[in-house]
Amino acid sequence: MLELRLVQGSLLKKVLESIKELVTDANFDCSSTGFSLQAMDSSHVALVALLLRSEGFEHYRCDRNMSMGMNLNNMAKMLKCAGNDDIITIKADDGGDTVTFMFESPTQDKISDFEMKLMDIDSEHLGIPEAEYHAIVKMPSSEFARICRDLSSIGDTVVISVTKEGVKFSTKGDIGSANIVCRQNTSVDKPEEATVIDMNEPVSLTFALRYMNSFTKATPLSNTVSISLSNELPVVVEYKIAEMGYVRFYLAPKIEE
């Protein structure tokens, strides 16, 4: 038996909106640690890893580890029926083939339940080792989204370069080229508006903007985003989910032939 009660139900709505473009079907794994997911896009270029820790739920009951295959578009359709202030409870029976989403209005005067069919998904799980990154850039998530959107009107790829001068986002296309440099600025009024660059070694990597733009669908989840870069590794774009966990996106770089 599984029963997870999330008071801030809007978080789950935002999580689904942030990943449903990248991944069609995925297994949600439920254990004593929390509610999690790891899934790759169909071309195996990008991966999403989600963790909502059990402590973040008001009530968390998971009698034994469960993996529930869901179509994310269908799940998003159901969660769209929850109000932004609603409490969402996820319920499932061991070995059952459905999951129920229960929505409670804050005043408890409207209670809805939506039952969704589960599916069998053969998903490939990747082992992602802990890594020391050459550079980690933390910046306002809205600024990162703006940069990705702006550059994708000029080119298809972005070169992200970190030096002691700052972080540079560059693109080239048929109509011309663009460079956006963000310098470290820790003297802003609010910490979430700061750009912080933690660099051990200069790094420069090229990525497809289409995927970066898809990742920025997670912007409503967090005021800040952290971008971890190493010359030999996929980039990690992480949005922290307040007091609960994270959504991390991994993207394989473009490599010179």
Partner: peptide, 14 residues
């Protein structure tokens, strides 16, 4: 020109 790599080049399947 650069070519898109895939994640399985970097991470092992488990």
């Amino acid at each position: 020109d650069s070519k898109q790599s895939t994640l399985t080049r970097f991470f092992k399947k488990v």
